[in-house]
Amino acid sequence: MKNKIPAPAILSAHDLREGYVAYWTGKIWSRDINQAKIAHADDEIVEMETVAASFIAQNIIVDFAIIPIAHIAYKITSKTLRESFLISGPTIEYGEPSIEGVENVSI
């Protein structure tokens, strides 16, 4: 039996073809966490599971997670350690060093 994820929560998954993390907005999958639909009640969370299963069956997403969140300074923040890094991306500077005057673009 899975642990019940407490509300409020959002739904994340990986795009099957490209692998990037996206969040369910209620209508589409967006890479912008601020567009994420927030489930406030248990039945909304159950509905998220159904949504995820349907998109998995359509071979659009893979490996979903329902992330319990809090709002800190108006930003959606994960309550679980692992998902906080999923949301933020790597906390280190990686890749080719930036060219002067051009900002390093993260995904």
Binding site: H14, E18, Y20, R82
Partner: peptide, 27 residues
């Protein structure tokens, strides 16, 4: 896999045997 002939469960061991992991942010 993309057309659904192979489920993720069936594809996963194959994808791993070809060095493709699904990590926190990407493959």
């Amino acid at each position: 896999r993309l057309d659904g002939s192979l489920s993720e469960d069936e594809f996963r061991p194959i994808r791993l045997r070809n060095g493709v992991y699904l990590q926190l942010h990407a493959y």
